[in-house]
Structure formats: structure tokens, C-alpha cells
Nucleic acid binder design. Sequence first.
RNA 1: GCGCCCGUAGCUCAGUGGAUUAGAGUACUUGGCUUCGAACCAAGUGGUCGCAGGUUCAAGUCCUGCCGGGCGUACCA
Length: 561
Amino acid sequence: MQAIVDLVEKAVKKLGWKAAAVEVSRTEAQFGDYSTNVAMLLASSVGENPRAIAEKLAAELSGNEFFNSVEVAGAGFINFRLSDAALAREVKSINAEPDRYGASKLYAGKVVVSEFSDPNPFKVLHVGHLYTSVIGDAISNIVAAAGGQVHRVNFGGDVGLHVAKTMWAIIQDLGGELPEKLADIPVEERSEWMGRCYVTGTRTYEDDAVAKETITENNRKIYNLHREDDHDSPFAQIYWTCRGWSYEYFDAFYARIGVKFEKYYPESEIAEVGLKTVLAQRDKGVYEDSDGAVIFNGEKYGLHTRVFINSNGIPIYEAKDVGLAIKKWDDYHFDKSIILTDAEQTDYMKVVMKSMEQYMPESVARTLHLTHGTVKLPGAEKMSSRKGNFLRAVDVIDMVAGEYKKAQGRTSDELVLGAIKYAFLKNRLGPNLSFDPETSVSMHGNSGPYLQYAAVRANAILQKIGEFEAVEINDLDEQERSLVVKLTEFSSVVDGATTELAPQVLCTYLYELAQVFNRFYENSPVANSPRSAIRAQLVQAYGYILRRGLNLLGITVPKKM
RNA sequence: GCGCCCGUAGCUCAGUGGAUUAGAGUACUUGGCUUCGAACCAAGUGGUCGCAGGUUCAAGUCCUGCCGGGCGUACCA
């Protein structure tokens, strides 16, 4: 709590000691509400033992109306117990400015580009896209709430070998370059059909040497139709139509999960600048020719070597990422660029960034690559969209909807997404995520439904009592006190989640908050109580904070459940 | 081989170097609905924090080595 930090700093100064970095953290209820170890940190510079320093500080602070008690414990901890007056002030200030209370300012005025999700046209959205979209959205929300001017962008391969493979199978399936036959594909089967074509094309590329040549040629044709702005040839007509289907399918998906993007960066729009840049920087010695390809020799930097332009002269993923980075910098001149991808790309990204550092160091220094693991479902094999044994994003939503219906007799996207998003976000980023639709997204315990329910309960109370007076808040009992103390932790939690870009920090807090509230709820009637007007203010403040926290995670609070 | 990540209760996981006794959820055993919805609450069982050293007043947390698992390691994205 910042107010305590300020008071401690003031006391340290008053006692004539050199200011140490004061940190105040929550502590176990048996010790107090908050504690600080500043006495231990001061020990060496002051030249006294921590315990004695703590005693002096406690004496200095204990008269303050902010505290009920200030006690020294253990090796020199100072434990604080907040006064009712201090707690009342917090509740009042939450209810006065529910959307601003405790907001972080860590990104105030900063321009932030947040790239995530990154699906490829001509392919199917799988469970990984759902996962990465949910995380990216939450992180973007957190940065935006901290004052960041966040631009959410999405990158995807509308050119490249995977498109060439899909196009090959599409043309086979249509019986030739016959765009008019596309009308025969039912609207609801389009994405599915393209996904199947991708799998067929990939298998063929691996097994059939003749077809492989055609696919390689297709790849070149696709780059060329962009260069020549060809929308008329039968091949181009098929390409543009299917590409359009993909983007419609993506938009519908994002709308369904409540994630919004400012723009797509299709690879076709950045491939040229990537290609030109890599060639220009090769001439300056950053990249090298090798076996007909253009590479970056990462071994000089303890990384591995990667190809940027293949021996057919086509810019592959590496060169496209160079183009993307340049385009983003030109578009936004960002203070921070966040790129969220699967952890498989960690070393890859290091190589690309190391190469760009040679000629655009400022942009690279402001770029942060965040990674996450893979979603594992119980009993599932490793998924591969190239082999076709993957789980689609909609399959996961359907599975959870099925579980919801089984358990509660009804379901809705709002509830299903609340369950999925929370299950995805409550764990730290990085390691793989075990996701079990049946148990992990259960209706009990540390789950999205628990939190949504905890919010609905608060609303139900407020609805029942209607208008109430903002009377003075005093003589808090134990349950009321714990609820308010928990509310005061909000700002430091948000700061922590923002600093670390770690949504799980917020999840843990919100769950604890909901637990504290549910305990309060069991024992503290609001409607039929002499303390009704006081408790209503607490419930209102709690409702605001819980809703804000959930919204940061991309989770909405249902009107009813 | 080399590089990066992970290893905490039966299972899934939290855990900015600090508190006699390492926390949740789940599962299991109990108790609590005439109430602002019990999708809740309360109590209990369950740990050599992978192993071994080191740094520190203090290590699940930092360092080193080892064991186990995952990922990456040149023309896919």
C-alpha cells in the first residue's frame, strides 16, 4: 500500500537515516495487515541491529491515525494493522472513482504495439490460437489500463509455402483452376475445407516429387500475383476468394471470444520490405550468402544460424519478420513492442532480433518477446496442424460448452469463455498448460465460474437493497475488515501484474478476494442488518474491484447465472 | 552434442531472498441450506519444494554440478 510506504519513508527521514527502498507487503492475518522489512535493510547503513531500528520506527509511526497498531516482530519486521478510519477512506475512494482506484501508471503516455494470435490464412484456428489470443488480450488490457496507448496487431502468412500447398490441393479439389466452382463450397464448411486442403497439400509436398515442383511454382506465383496486383487470372481469383474467406473466419472467431484487433499485417504486405532490407543489409555485411541462400550467422553471437531468404530467392519467415518489425516501427514509433508467441520460437526470435540489432538497434531495444507453452488436453497426442491431428479452437469451446451444459443444464458463450479464459490465465506463462475441459474448467474452486458467480452474488445483494446511504464506515467486524483489507491490496497487485506482464498475479488475487467475500457473505447479511448501509458500501466496492479485475482478464460479469 | 525452459501434496498449480508450522484448487473424510442463490462456507487427511554442494543473519526462491522431462538447433511457419 503506497500510503504506508509514504509514512514509513517519512519516518525514516525524520529519524535522520538514509532512505532505503521501502517495501510494504501483505502479511499473514496473525501478524497484521501489512508488514515491512525496512529495518533489516537499514541495519548495515545505520549501524544498529534491525530490531532496535524497528522499535524506533514503530514508535515514530504508532501515533498515526492510519494505524490501529504498529508492532515489531521477529528479526525486525514491522507489522501494521490499519485503522477503521483508514479502511473506510479506501472504501469511499473506490466507490467515488471505481474505474480509477488503484490504477497503475506504469505505461502512462507510452505507445505500445501488442502483437499476438498470428493465425495463418488458408489454415484452421487451433487451440493454440485460442490460448495465445486470450493471453495477448489480457496483457494488452493490463498495459492499456496502466495508461498505455495500446495498438493490437495481428500478423499472418497469406503468402508462403503453406499457402502454396493449400492452393495446390484446392485446385485439385476444384478439378482445375476453376474459381466459379468455389461457389459450391457451403459457407459454413469453408474454413474446414481449406484446413483439409492444407493437410492434403502438405502430405503431397512430402510424398510426391512432381507435385512438389508445382507447389514450389505455386509459391512463386503467389508472391508474383501480389507484386502484379493480379486479381483476374483464375489462379488469382481462387487465391483472393479463399484468402477473404480466411479473414472473415478470423473476424468471426475474434468477435466470438471478445478480442479486438486494430489491424492485420498480412505477410504479403511486409514480405517485399523484408526482402529488400535483408538484401541491402547483406551488401553491408550483416547477412551472408550461403549455398544460394541468404543467412544470418548467429554463431558469432552464441546463437544458431538461420536462413532469411531461401535459394529460390523467396523471403521466408525470418525475412518477413524483419519486414514486419520495420513496418511496425514506421507505423507507430512505439515505446514498447510486445510480441507474444509460442515458446518454440524463443531461439528463432533471438536470431532475428540479433540480426536487426545491427541496423535498427533502437527498435530492437524496445521490443519484448514473450512466450507461452502449449495447451495439453488429457490423453491427447502432440498436435500438428501439418499432420491434421489438431484440436480446433471451436472444438475446445464446444467441449467446454458441453461440460457446462452437463453440469448446470445450460450454457452460454459468456460463461464458457469466462471458464476458458480464467483457466488459461491463472497459470504463469511459459510452461505448457494442462487444460481439462471436465475438471480444470469445473464449476468449483479456483475457476472462472467461481469468480463470475462471486460477482453475480454481489450484484444480487445490491439489487435487493436498492438505494442506500453512504453512511460513515466504522466499528468493522472481522469479516468486514478482511474484505476491505483485501480490497486495499488491489493497486499493488495491478502494479505487479503490469510490471511482470503476468495475468496470473491478478487471477490469484481475484480468487483470494472472492474467497474473502464469500466468507463475508456467509456470516454478514446485508439486507436485514442494522449495518446494512455500511455493508452495502463494502459490497459495492468489492463488486467494482472484482469486475475491473475480471475485465482486465477479458472476462465479463454476467447479469445472472 | 550444444542452447533455452521446466521439476513444489495422488493430480493440476500459486509462491517480489524473509516469520514457531511451504500455500491453493482437486480428490478423499466430515459438518452446515426456512436466509442477499449451497455454482457457497467450515473442519480434517495429504510435502525429503528432483538430488548434492555453495552464497547469506535468512534459500522453494540466488550460484555450481548432476538426474529426469519438454522445446530449439539452415532454406516450414
